[in-house]
Protein backbone atom coordinates (compact mmCIF):
# COMPACT_ATOMS: atom_id res chain seq x y z
CA UNK A 1 0.00 0.00 0.00
CA UNK A 2 1.17 3.49 -0.85
CA UNK A 3 2.40 5.56 2.07
CA UNK A 4 0.36 8.71 1.45
CA UNK A 5 2.32 10.69 4.03
CA UNK A 6 5.17 10.70 1.53
CA UNK A 7 2.86 11.43 -1.38
CA UNK A 8 0.64 14.35 -0.48
CA UNK A 9 -2.99 14.33 -1.59
CA UNK A 10 -3.74 15.87 -4.99
CA UNK A 11 -3.52 19.63 -5.06
CA UNK A 12 -6.39 20.81 -7.24
CA UNK A 13 -8.19 23.89 -5.90
CA UNK A 14 -11.80 23.64 -4.68
CA UNK A 15 -12.96 25.59 -7.74
CA UNK A 16 -14.48 24.69 -11.10
CA UNK A 17 -12.28 23.17 -13.77
CA UNK A 18 -13.02 22.25 -17.38
CA UNK A 19 -11.93 19.46 -19.67
CA UNK A 20 -9.41 21.24 -21.90
CA UNK A 21 -10.06 21.41 -25.65
CA UNK A 22 -7.40 22.94 -27.93
CA UNK A 23 -9.97 25.16 -29.68
CA UNK A 24 -10.41 27.04 -26.38
CA UNK A 25 -6.71 27.77 -25.89
CA UNK A 26 -6.76 31.48 -26.77
CA UNK A 27 -9.99 32.11 -24.81
CA UNK A 28 -8.66 30.41 -21.69
CA UNK A 29 -5.34 32.25 -21.82
CA UNK A 30 -7.15 35.58 -22.37
CA UNK A 31 -9.79 35.17 -19.66
CA UNK A 32 -10.46 31.88 -17.85
CA UNK A 33 -13.45 33.38 -16.00
CA UNK A 34 -14.44 31.14 -13.09
CA UNK A 35 -12.17 28.30 -14.25
CA UNK A 36 -9.39 27.61 -11.76
CA UNK A 37 -7.84 24.47 -13.24
CA UNK A 38 -7.86 22.25 -16.32
CA UNK A 39 -8.13 18.55 -16.98
CA UNK A 40 -6.51 16.81 -19.94
CA UNK A 41 -6.88 13.28 -21.28
CA UNK A 42 -3.45 11.75 -20.86
CA UNK A 43 -3.63 9.84 -24.15
CA UNK A 44 -3.89 13.08 -26.16
CA UNK A 45 -0.48 14.21 -24.91
CA UNK A 46 1.69 11.21 -25.64
CA UNK A 47 3.30 12.50 -28.81
CA UNK A 48 6.92 13.65 -28.97
CA UNK A 49 6.30 17.37 -29.48
CA UNK A 50 4.45 19.87 -31.62
CA UNK A 51 1.56 22.12 -30.68
CA UNK A 52 -0.18 19.79 -28.15
CA UNK A 53 2.80 19.65 -25.79
CA UNK A 54 3.76 23.30 -26.37
CA UNK A 55 0.24 24.47 -25.46
CA UNK A 56 0.12 22.18 -22.46
CA UNK A 57 3.43 23.58 -21.26
CA UNK A 58 2.03 27.14 -21.40
CA UNK A 59 -1.23 26.13 -19.72
CA UNK A 60 0.62 24.38 -16.92
CA UNK A 61 2.49 27.60 -16.16
CA UNK A 62 -0.86 29.28 -15.40
CA UNK A 63 -3.20 26.54 -14.18
CA UNK A 64 -3.08 23.45 -11.99
CA UNK A 65 -3.52 20.48 -14.33
CA UNK A 66 -5.36 17.25 -13.72
CA UNK A 67 -4.19 14.33 -15.86
CA UNK A 68 -7.12 12.01 -16.53
CA UNK A 69 -6.28 8.67 -18.12
CA UNK A 70 -8.82 6.97 -20.33
CA UNK A 71 -6.86 4.00 -21.65
CA UNK A 72 -5.22 2.10 -18.81
CA UNK A 73 -7.99 -0.53 -18.52
CA UNK A 74 -7.64 -0.86 -14.74
CA UNK A 75 -10.57 -3.28 -14.64
CA UNK A 76 -9.07 -5.48 -17.39
CA UNK A 77 -8.60 -9.20 -16.86
CA UNK A 78 -5.09 -9.11 -18.25
CA UNK A 79 -2.04 -7.36 -16.81
CA UNK A 80 -1.69 -3.59 -17.19
CA UNK A 81 0.05 -2.44 -20.37
CA UNK A 82 3.56 -1.71 -19.08
CA UNK A 83 4.46 0.47 -22.06
CA UNK A 84 1.37 2.58 -21.50
CA UNK A 85 2.11 2.88 -17.82
CA UNK A 86 5.62 4.06 -18.71
CA UNK A 87 4.14 6.70 -21.02
CA UNK A 88 1.91 7.91 -18.19
CA UNK A 89 4.89 8.13 -15.91
CA UNK A 90 6.82 10.08 -18.53
CA UNK A 91 3.94 12.55 -18.91
CA UNK A 92 3.50 12.97 -15.14
CA UNK A 93 7.23 13.40 -14.55
CA UNK A 94 7.35 16.11 -17.19
CA UNK A 95 4.11 17.92 -16.35
CA UNK A 96 4.05 17.42 -12.55
CA UNK A 97 0.24 17.57 -12.55
CA UNK A 98 -1.81 18.41 -9.47
CA UNK A 99 -3.78 15.17 -9.86
CA UNK A 100 -3.88 11.88 -11.73
CA UNK A 101 -7.09 9.90 -12.15
CA UNK A 102 -8.37 6.86 -14.03
CA UNK A 103 -11.55 4.77 -14.30
CA UNK A 104 -13.10 1.77 -12.62
CA UNK A 105 -13.65 0.13 -16.01
CA UNK A 106 -11.91 -1.88 -18.71
CA UNK A 107 -11.21 -0.93 -22.31
CA UNK A 108 -8.52 -3.26 -23.59
CA UNK A 109 -8.80 -6.97 -24.24
CA UNK A 110 -5.77 -8.94 -25.45
CA UNK A 111 -4.08 -5.76 -26.70
CA UNK A 112 -7.14 -4.62 -28.68
CA UNK A 113 -8.27 -1.22 -27.43
CA UNK A 114 -12.05 -0.69 -27.64
CA UNK A 115 -12.07 3.07 -26.89
CA UNK A 116 -14.92 2.79 -24.39
CA UNK A 117 -15.15 2.47 -20.61
CA UNK A 118 -16.82 -0.85 -19.92
CA UNK A 119 -18.21 -1.74 -16.51
CA UNK A 120 -17.22 -4.86 -14.59
CA UNK A 121 -18.94 -7.04 -11.98
CA UNK A 122 -18.12 -6.36 -8.33
CA UNK A 123 -16.81 -9.56 -6.77
CA UNK A 124 -13.93 -10.58 -4.49
CA UNK A 125 -11.98 -11.59 -7.61
CA UNK A 126 -12.43 -8.27 -9.41
CA UNK A 127 -11.72 -6.40 -6.15
CA UNK A 128 -8.34 -8.10 -5.88
CA UNK A 129 -7.54 -7.49 -9.54
CA UNK A 130 -8.50 -3.82 -9.51
CA UNK A 131 -6.67 -3.20 -6.22
CA UNK A 132 -3.52 -4.87 -7.53
CA UNK A 133 -3.66 -2.76 -10.69
CA UNK A 134 -4.14 0.47 -8.73
CA UNK A 135 -1.24 -0.34 -6.43
CA UNK A 136 0.91 -0.97 -9.50
CA UNK A 137 -0.12 2.38 -11.03
CA UNK A 138 0.63 4.24 -7.80
CA UNK A 139 3.99 2.49 -7.45
CA UNK A 140 5.02 3.32 -11.02
CA UNK A 141 3.79 6.93 -10.90
CA UNK A 142 5.03 7.45 -7.35
CA UNK A 143 1.82 9.22 -6.42
CA UNK A 144 -1.72 8.66 -5.25
CA UNK A 145 -4.35 8.27 -7.97
CA UNK A 146 -8.08 8.95 -7.95
CA UNK A 147 -10.45 6.22 -9.17
CA UNK A 148 -13.66 7.24 -10.96
CA UNK A 149 -17.05 5.51 -10.67
CA UNK A 150 -18.39 4.35 -14.05
CA UNK A 151 -21.70 4.75 -15.89
CA UNK A 152 -23.70 1.51 -15.91
CA UNK A 153 -26.26 0.37 -18.45
CA UNK A 154 -26.73 -3.18 -17.17
CA UNK A 155 -26.64 -5.14 -13.94
CA UNK A 156 -24.19 -8.03 -13.48
CA UNK A 157 -25.85 -11.08 -11.91
CA UNK A 158 -22.37 -12.07 -10.77
CA UNK A 159 -21.85 -9.01 -8.54
CA UNK A 160 -21.70 -9.72 -4.83
CA UNK A 161 -20.90 -6.19 -3.62
CA UNK A 162 -22.39 -2.77 -4.22
CA UNK A 163 -20.31 -0.31 -6.23
CA UNK A 164 -19.90 1.96 -3.19
CA UNK A 165 -18.69 -0.92 -0.99
CA UNK A 166 -16.36 -2.00 -3.77
CA UNK A 167 -14.86 1.50 -4.08
CA UNK A 168 -14.52 1.88 -0.29
CA UNK A 169 -12.69 -1.45 -0.14
CA UNK A 170 -10.34 -0.45 -3.00
CA UNK A 171 -9.50 2.73 -1.05
CA UNK A 172 -8.79 0.71 2.07
CA UNK A 173 -6.54 -1.71 0.21
CA UNK A 174 -4.59 0.75 -1.95
CA UNK A 175 -4.73 4.19 -0.34
CA UNK A 176 -6.06 5.66 -3.58
CA UNK A 177 -8.54 8.54 -3.61
CA UNK A 178 -11.83 8.72 -5.48
CA UNK A 179 -13.20 10.80 -8.31
CA UNK A 180 -16.97 11.00 -7.95
CA UNK A 181 -18.70 11.53 -11.30
CA UNK A 182 -22.09 12.85 -10.26
CA UNK A 183 -23.51 12.48 -13.77
CA UNK A 184 -22.42 8.83 -13.80
CA UNK A 185 -24.21 8.31 -10.46
CA UNK A 186 -27.42 9.72 -11.94
CA UNK A 187 -27.04 7.77 -15.21
CA UNK A 188 -26.36 4.46 -13.41
CA UNK A 189 -29.13 4.97 -10.83
CA UNK A 190 -31.67 5.69 -13.57
CA UNK A 191 -30.53 2.74 -15.67
CA UNK A 192 -30.41 0.31 -12.75
CA UNK A 193 -33.57 1.68 -11.08
CA UNK A 194 -31.84 2.58 -7.83
CA UNK A 195 -31.77 5.81 -5.80
CA UNK A 196 -29.03 8.31 -6.70
CA UNK A 197 -29.15 9.89 -3.22
CA UNK A 198 -28.82 6.45 -1.62
CA UNK A 199 -25.63 6.02 -3.64
CA UNK A 200 -24.26 9.36 -2.39
CA UNK A 201 -25.25 8.44 1.20
CA UNK A 202 -23.25 5.21 0.90
CA UNK A 203 -20.26 6.80 -0.88
CA UNK A 204 -17.05 7.33 1.13
CA UNK A 205 -17.10 11.10 0.48
CA UNK A 206 -14.09 11.76 2.73
CA UNK A 207 -11.88 10.18 0.06
CA UNK A 208 -13.20 12.26 -2.86
CA UNK A 209 -10.56 14.46 -4.47
CA UNK A 210 -12.64 15.62 -7.44
CA UNK A 211 -16.18 15.75 -8.81
CA UNK A 212 -17.13 15.34 -12.45
CA UNK A 213 -20.21 16.81 -14.13
CA UNK A 214 -21.24 16.28 -17.73
CA UNK A 215 -24.15 15.81 -20.07
CA UNK A 216 -26.01 12.61 -20.90
CA UNK A 217 -28.37 11.54 -23.68
CA UNK A 218 -31.85 10.17 -23.02
CA UNK A 219 -33.01 6.98 -24.72
CA UNK A 220 -35.23 4.01 -23.89
CA UNK A 221 -34.58 0.29 -23.71
CA UNK A 222 -36.62 -2.42 -25.48
CA UNK A 223 -39.49 -2.10 -22.99
CA UNK A 224 -39.59 1.69 -22.96
CA UNK A 225 -37.74 2.01 -19.63
CA UNK A 226 -35.43 5.06 -19.52
CA UNK A 227 -31.90 4.40 -20.70
CA UNK A 228 -29.47 7.26 -20.10
CA UNK A 229 -26.20 7.33 -22.00
CA UNK A 230 -23.11 9.09 -20.68
CA UNK A 231 -22.28 11.20 -23.75
CA UNK A 232 -20.48 14.37 -22.54
CA UNK A 233 -22.10 16.10 -25.49
CA UNK A 234 -24.39 18.69 -23.89
CA UNK A 235 -25.07 20.71 -20.73
CA UNK A 236 -25.23 18.96 -17.36
CA UNK A 237 -28.87 18.05 -16.70
CA UNK A 238 -30.85 19.79 -13.93
CA UNK A 239 -31.32 16.64 -11.78
CA UNK A 240 -27.55 16.15 -11.89
CA UNK A 241 -26.99 19.71 -10.61
CA UNK A 242 -29.48 18.92 -7.83
CA UNK A 243 -27.56 15.74 -7.02
CA UNK A 244 -24.34 17.78 -6.89
CA UNK A 245 -26.00 20.13 -4.38
CA UNK A 246 -27.07 17.12 -2.30
CA UNK A 247 -23.50 15.81 -2.41
CA UNK A 248 -21.80 19.15 -1.69
CA UNK A 249 -23.99 19.63 1.39
CA UNK A 250 -22.40 16.44 2.76
CA UNK A 251 -18.84 16.76 1.41
CA UNK A 252 -18.13 20.49 1.37
CA UNK A 253 -16.47 22.09 -1.66
CA UNK A 254 -14.17 20.00 -3.85
CA UNK A 255 -12.52 20.51 -7.25
CA UNK A 256 -15.45 20.23 -9.69
CA UNK A 257 -14.97 19.53 -13.39
CA UNK A 258 -17.23 20.21 -16.37
CA UNK A 259 -16.66 17.48 -18.97
CA UNK A 260 -17.79 18.28 -22.52
CA UNK A 261 -16.05 16.02 -25.05
CA UNK A 262 -18.48 15.79 -27.98
CA UNK A 263 -20.24 18.61 -29.84
CA UNK A 264 -17.79 20.84 -28.00
CA UNK A 265 -19.37 24.32 -27.64
CA UNK A 266 -17.86 27.77 -27.95
CA UNK A 267 -15.91 28.87 -24.88
CA UNK A 268 -18.64 31.14 -23.37
CA UNK A 269 -21.04 28.16 -23.12
CA UNK A 270 -18.46 26.07 -21.29
CA UNK A 271 -17.48 29.02 -19.07
CA UNK A 272 -21.19 29.46 -18.18
CA UNK A 273 -21.34 25.82 -17.03
CA UNK A 274 -18.23 26.43 -14.92
CA UNK A 275 -19.89 29.55 -13.45
CA UNK A 276 -22.90 27.42 -12.49
CA UNK A 277 -20.55 25.08 -10.64
CA UNK A 278 -18.76 28.05 -9.02
CA UNK A 279 -21.99 29.42 -7.52
CA UNK A 280 -22.81 26.02 -6.02
CA UNK A 281 -19.32 25.61 -4.58
CA UNK A 282 -19.51 29.13 -3.11
CA UNK A 283 -22.79 28.29 -1.38
CA UNK A 284 -21.24 25.41 0.59
CA UNK A 285 -17.91 27.15 1.18
CA UNK A 286 -19.65 30.01 3.03
Amino acid sequence: MLDITKHPAPGLPDSPGVGYKPQHYADIMADPGPVGWLEIHAENYMGDGGRPLAQLHHLAERFPISVHGVGLSIGGEGPLDKAHLARLRHLCDWLKPASFSEHLAWSTHESAYLNDLIALPYTRATLTRVSDHISEVQDVLGRQMLLENPSSYLAFAESTMSETDFLAEVVQRTGCGLLLDVNNVFVSATNLATGPQDYIDAFPLEHVGEFHLGGHDEDHDDTGAPLLIDSHGCETADPVWALLDYTLARSGPRPTLIEWDNNVPEWPVLAAEAARAASRLARVAA
Partner: peptide, 13 residues
Protein backbone atom coordinates in the same frame (compact mmCIF):
# COMPACT_ATOMS: atom_id res chain seq x y z
CA UNK B 1 -25.38 -12.73 -16.52
CA UNK B 2 -26.02 -9.23 -17.84
CA UNK B 3 -29.52 -7.96 -17.33
CA UNK B 4 -31.82 -4.99 -17.03
CA UNK B 5 -32.63 -4.15 -13.39
CA UNK B 6 -35.82 -6.24 -13.36
CA UNK B 7 -33.90 -9.25 -14.66
CA UNK B 8 -34.98 -8.94 -18.28
CA UNK B 9 -32.30 -9.76 -20.87
CA UNK B 10 -29.74 -7.08 -21.72
CA UNK B 11 -31.25 -6.38 -25.16
CA UNK B 12 -30.78 -2.83 -26.35
CA UNK B 13 -28.81 -1.91 -23.23
Amino acid sequence: GLAAPDGRPAGKR
